[in-house]
Write a protein that binds this DNA or RNA. Structure first.
Lengths: 340, 340
DNA sequence: GGTTTTTCCGCAAACGTTTGCGAAAGTGTC
DNA sequence: GACACTTTCGCAAACGTTTGCGGAAAAACC
């Protein structure tokens, strides 16, 4: 009924628990004969070691903690998928928490994971996270940590990011080459490094092409489709629309798209759109959304890999930042402008 | 540097570990004075109990295991989100595994979670899962389990499902009322209860409306968009197309949609489409996809709730099956047929 | 002031492992 | 047959908790 333990095996075999333990771990001190007896019985009873006891004793668990803003967002669930994949291959299981984009929950999440003595922590911070005490706390406890996607630069950890600056820059160049000049930017919240980098890419690309950033076309908002719709409202309330908009991500772009469409604004004839991160939805809207593809699955894989590397390094470890390549997927929503 | 323990607190305060433990848990045997001293110091050192040790000692962990076919699928990541939400509120953290739709990994997943001595298990089985020894094994170990979405009827556990039969039935009725008669069904794999129930709903609705199920319009395939595209190929290879197709889920419907669109088949004029489960993509394609909305988030919430209920029940527990309501979202892809 | 009761706390065992150390056999050497 | 090794195993402590039990001191009773 209950769980089978080493002691039970030991009793049944008439040996000591330590012998069973060593036999199972193939310790040279144990004779082949008893090893066979032990493994046979273990097999028979479907014995699996209690990871809790094992972790406690070894002071090292086989669990990796993951904190993301929202599990159900396509980008993050894909990252998690990638994380699980590699973690699984290396004998780790993952504990997943979501901060719901709030700092308070993020703090509680980290505490919970520390309490569970995870071997390491993978995190993409919430949009509210501007103080990092909870994270440096984790580091101080000696728990390895890797940040991905949304990272705080100040913290000395490994990081996996994409080159947001370059991605945004290239997206704008593409728009310019397609004939769009008055290009707006529907940005995320201010103060977030990722948003700032994308803005800078946008700004510099504009400047380098002799174009001016028109402040009225530069809005701030959240990360969801709903925020995109709200943004569209604000654009519609202006006396004129930009020729193109670079959105902070795909959901926002889709929000802009659907609200614009309702309002009778034609895409891309009246307003061209470019998003970030290739959600499946983007490929299906009509016209399809031009977007910066971000390798979410690979990002998850890379994050764990860096963490595992840190596990092995122990002493001579130096944080590493991996920048993954983005790819601009050019589709209908930024179709070259017909000359007029 | 390392983790702070009860012993450290005890030493620093000059009391015994047991006193610290009791003080932290507000045991009446401890005086208010020492309770204050203990909690103050614990606060100061950011002490958090080691869950591993706690679980080991209490023989009861605060972790809930979750196994889904694929984390990155919208439906499942939404379910997981719902699970995490309620689990979090009740002081549980979740361990997430994906079976990648294979039985082999599902078995390893269950073993890993049993090894971690999860308090309970939530599972949606893989499409390969036709033998259940690994699951009955879990039950035999005394670990409570709740199945959701894809369930195996034979197992005596609580379940959360939607009424697939009725949902499919209603979808077909809607198509019939919209003027479609020769209705095909792009089904999932055979042998899966869920697929069978949807098929039966489809079949009975056809029969009750005096229509015939035409076998050539009844195809089997997987769950992904790609499978939908393959299905479309097979439909296109027929000498004629059905007037409408009920797809096993949204990704498949979207796959049908995009392949049909490429082939110049007009939706819904030539072929009407109905999907299952309301992925965001469905709302965005043009025409938007008529679909059976499945309350994924709520399904996750309900599953944990049932599990928690079972935790409390202990002795007098009887498995319970909750059937959540679906809702047919009628959109453009099944627009009433113009009379000819 | 003696007895009983109450208050407060510590000892020790336990949860299921792992591991250093020591000890009992067996093996080999001269 | 004495000695030194080698092989094979068990004892016991430890990981960080919790908890039954008992005991010392304080409080309460007559």
């Amino acid at each position: 009924m209950a769980q089978f333990t080493i002691k039970d095996l030991a009793r049944e075999l008439g040996v000591s628990p330590s012998t069973v333990s060593r036999a199972l771990r193939d310790h040279p001190d144990i004779s082949d004969a008893t090893k066979k007896r032990v493994t046979a019985l273990a097999e028979k009873h479907h014995y699996h070691p209690n990871q809790l006891a094992q972790s406690l004793q070894k002071k090292r668990s086989s669990t990796i903690g993951v904190i993301v803003p929202e599990i159900r967002h396509h980008f993050f669930s894909t990252v998690i998928s990638g994380i699980e994949e590699i973690a699984y291959e290396n004998g780790y299981t993952i504990m997943v928490c979501q901060s719901n984009e709030t700092l308070a929950r993020e703090i509680l999440n980290t505490q919970a994971l520390v309490s569970h003595r995870v071997a390491g922590l993978l995190i993409a911070i919430s949009s509210e996270t501007t103080s990092f005490d909870h994270l440096s706390g984790v580091l101080k406890q000696g728990i390895p940590m890797v940040q991905f996607d949304r990272v705080v630069e100040e913290l000395s950890t490994s990081k996996v990011v994409v080159d947001d600056y370059r991605a945004a820059y290239e997206a704008v160049v593409h728009l310019v080459e397609s004939g769009y000049r008055r290009i707006g930017h529907m940005a995320g919240l201010e103060g977030i490094a990722l948003n700032r980098r994308r803005f800078e890419g946008y700004r510099d690309a504009m400047r380098d092409n002799g174009l001016e950033v028109e402040e009225k076309f530069h809005l701030h908002g959240g990360y969801r489709e709903e925020d995109g719709r709200k943004g569209a409202e604000r654009y519609l309330a202006l006396d004129e629309l930009p020729e193109a908009i670079l959105a902070i991500n795909d959901p926002v772009a889709v929000g802009l798209f659907s609200r614009f469409k309702e309002a009778g604004v034609r895409i891309p004839d009246s307003v061209a759109l470019v998003g970030f991160s290739d959600t499946p939805a983007g490929a299906l809207i009509d016209p399809a959304l031009t977007t910066v593809y971000q390798p979410a699955f690979e990002m998850g894989q890379t994050a764990v890999t860096l963490l595992l590397k840190q596990f092995d390094a122990e002493d001579d470890f130096v944080p590493e930042t991996v920048t993954l390549n983005t790819r601009l997927l050019i589709r209908g929503s930024s179709h070259p402008r017909e000359e007029e």
